[in-house]
């Protein structure tokens, strides 16, 4: 569609800290600030997974964070892109192999862009987001293609809905 080129102009971000040292988090905050002002690219820090397109995750994923990470990721509607910020987000960084760390975000959710740095500069984050936008656009197109293959849900298979059966029993 001709409208495609506008679609990457409004990536809304969601930030989750999966056990990082706050370094990258304050840099994400600095990105919102006037000096870098990522709202120029239409980005809003929504804080709400249901309305976000890009998830900025920092930290090496501690054991207690991982469920929340997956939970929040699963609440984001597709198309969505995950950016791992900082070395510890990419690979666990200095925390690799510590007993309560899982070593990198991609061990739990698929990461699309890895932003290196300890902590990563706002410029690097912006570069990562720009990278992510291309991926987002591609994912949107893929989704459009997949709509045609959509199958109707079970209801039309002539099978009884399980929940109804359960209700009767």
């Amino acid at each position: 569609m001709a409208l495609n080129k506008f679609r990457t102009k409004s990536p809304w971000i969601l930030h989750y800290n999966a056990g990082s040292c706050n370094g990258c988090d304050i840099e994400i905050l600095a990105c919102l600030a006037p000096k870098y002002d990522i709202e120029r690219f239409g980005m809003i820090n929504t804080g709400n997974p249901k309305q976000s397109d890009i998830m900025l995750v920092t930290g090496p994923v501690t054991k207690r964070s991982r469920e929340r990470l997956v939970d929040i990721y699963s609440q984001m509607p597709e198309p969505k892109v995950v950016i791992a910020c900082g070395s510890c987000g990419c690979s666990g960084g200095v925390f690799r192999g510590m007993y309560n760390c899982e070593g990198g975000i991609d061990q739990y959710i698929p990461v699309d862009v890895y932003v290196p740095g300890c902590g990563c500069r706002p410029e690097q984050i912006i570069a990562g987001v720009v990278e992510a936008l291309a991926i987002l656009e591609k994912k949107t197109k893929d989704m459009e293609g997949s709509v045609k293959l959509h199958n109707d849900p079970i209801e039309q298979d002539g099978q009884t809905n399980r929940r109804e059966v359960a209700a009767v029993i």
Binding site: G19, P60, R64, M98
Partner: peptide
Amino acid sequence: VGYVHRGIEQACCSK
């Protein structure tokens, strides 16, 4: 408050 426990103390004494 225990979300960010990564085990740094132990790593500093072993790794």
